[in-house]
Write a protein that binds this DNA or RNA. Structure first.
Length: 415
RNA sequence: CGGGGCGUGGUGUAACGGCUAACAUGCCUCUUUUGGGAAGAGGUGACUCCGGGUUCGAAUCCCGGCGCCCCGACCA
């Protein structure tokens, strides 16, 4: 894409109503726009990153047999009453609304109830199990306090997968697979090294749930990590019994702040029981389906990556999620007047065309502005590889290739 | 939801209760410039968040509202 056509602009200064690093950088670089507290729009660059994240998650969910659906945000009150999750006293994060005839509706903050209900139409027999279903969905949560930019919003994107198994044993097998898939995802997203599988509160059907916590000062969770074992325990469940269970010793643990980028949960038969999702076993008996749920918020992940991978000059995207792979920066110098076809512009146009033809995603800075401004913007936007082309580089028939992360520069011949 | 802070051109800031609300940046025009946010000149752009009140006079003081940020509580 030609940068001269990109409608978003960079800014020198962050708006004063943002303090968090992710929001400051993402707004300054033109990735997102704040609509109101905890509610952000994704602009072209931001959407590209978000879609990259979504793509990686989708591949890994498909790899463990997930089948993608797209459910509704509007929720039918009845199903939530069946599980006693409708009342504001039980659950105060609902956004609720009404039809013209006064029928109450909710804006989904999660999707166990409606999906369990859908599955009733399709699961009859033990032969129909196991199954895994997932979606990418806008979730609405009426948070008492939205904060930290894109990390805790009231409207955000969520991937939620739900598994349906014959019994606990079969569920545990799937659960373990999902756990591995999650680590694979975070590795591919470039935050694997700082992301720890963390034991957390389990709820009524299992002792623990597993959170995926990325070490980061901007996080709101406190976790205790054992670096050698690459295990962690959330502060909320830290006690001697738990440590004993997990074979961890207090002396080895270090306290760290972290961002919860994923959470997987065993649900047992809580929802299937309440909503009547049963299968018939070989002996003809009806049995409640055993369920699990598995969440990752792609928008929160994007904020987390921005927090973890950035420096004083701007964002530093891992290649797997960067909006473009290459930032082609043309320094026209006195080579050409605006729009003219000087030597540099011609060479840059050609390089852009040939890279694009090869399928390389390129943001081509073809704007008429000073070199300093272009470099500053390039650092801020944070595309992994910068190709600089100018009179200077053309003199040796080459381009300058700079690694955004390491700052390493090398000259490469144009052929 | 409790506590604290803050609302002034697009953005960041300034202005004792008193001149036409200032500066920087952005944007537009012209000239010069051209490898780390270039220089000069001219221009554009603000009912000072909203509503009341005090006062001869309010961006400034008081009351109410709304919004935003931070701390805490909460957070399948």
């Amino acid at each position: 894409m030609k940068q001269s056509q990109l409608f978003t602009k960079t800014r020198r200064e962050a708006p004063k109503d943002e303090v968090s690093k992710n929001a400051q950088l993402l707004i300054r670089a033109g990735y997102i726009h704040k609509e109101m507290a905890g509610v952000y729009d994704f602009l072209p660059l931001g959407l590209r990153v978000l879609n990259k994240i979504v793509g990686i998650i989708r591949e890994e969910m498909n790899a463990i047999g997930g089948q993608e659906v797209h459910m509704t945000a509007l929720q039918d009150k009845g199903k939530w009453e069946a599980t006693d999750r409708w009342s504001d006293k039980v659950n105060d994060i609902w956004f609720k609304t009404k039809l013209k005839n006064d029928t109450e509706l909710g804006l989904g903050f999660t999707h166990e109830e409606p999906l369990t209900s859908i599955m009733k139409d399709h699961i009859r027999s033990y032969k129909d199990l196991p199954k895994a279903v997932y979606q990418f969905q806008t979730k609405f949560r009426n948070e008492a306090r939205a904060k930290s930019g894109i990390l805790r919003g009231r409207e955000f994107l969520m991937k939620d997968l739900y598994s349906f198994s014959i019994d606990e044993k079969s569920h545990n097998i799937y659960y373990a697979k999902a756990k591995d898939a999650y680590m694979k995802i975070f590795n591919r997203l470039g935050i694997g090294d700082q992301t720890f599988v963390t034991f957390a509160t389990g709820g009524s059907f299992s002792k623990y749930s597993h959170e995926f916590q990325t070490l980061c000062e901007a996080g709101e969770d406190l976790i205790y990590i054992d670096e050698k074992k690459k295990m962690a325990v959330n502060k909320e469940v830290l006690n001697d019994e738990v440590l004993n269970d997990l074979g961890l010793s207090r002396a080895e643990l270090v306290e760290k702040k972290a961002i919860e980028v994923g959470n997987i949960f065993s649900l047992g038969t809580k929802f299937s029981g309440a909503l009547g999702l049963n299968y018939r076993d070989e002996s003809g008996k009806d049995i409640a389906v055993n369920m699990g749920c598995y969440g990752i918020g792609p928008s929160r992940v994007m904020g987390t990556i921005a927090e973890v991978w950035s420096d004083d000059k701007g964002l530093v995207w891992p290649e797997s999620v960067a909006p473009f792979k290459v930032h082609l920066v043309a320094i026209f110098g006195k080579d050409t007047a605006s729009g003219g076809a000087g030597k540099v512009r011609q060479a840059a146009d050609e390089l852009y065309a040939s890279l694009t033809a090869k399928g390389v995603e390129v943001l081509y800075d073809d704007r008429d502005c000073s070199a300093g401004e272009k470099f500053g913007d390039s650092d801020l936007i944070g595309i992994p590889w910068r190709y600089v082309i100018s009179e200077k580089t053309l003199a040796t028939d080459s381009i300058e290739v700079k690694d955004r992360k390491t700052g390493t520069v090398e000259m490469k011949k144009l052929k």
